[in-house]
Amino acid sequence: MQDYKFDEHCEQFPVAMAYVPWQRFNGIYEDLEKAYRIGTIFPELNKPFTGGRCVQ
């Protein structure tokens, strides 16, 4: 089984808790029409579902 690299940065947090990294602002999509179709103006939040049959 692969040994996932232990991230010492997380040591300060209690175990068994989920953590969401804080979003940083580094600009938005140039083409707003494309962003509108994608559903977000932030490239880092563009996470399309790519599994299974319902992918075009």
């Binding site: 979003q23 602002f25 938005i28 707003l32 962003a35 509108y36 977000t40 103006i41 932030f42």
Partner: peptide, 27 residues
Amino acid sequence: IGILCFTVVELSLYLDTHPNDRNAIEY
């Protein structure tokens, strides 16, 4: 206008959690 409304709402959602982000405010 609809696309601009969408963009403005997206930026406002980000600013709700990052009220001091000058860059985002300018956008």
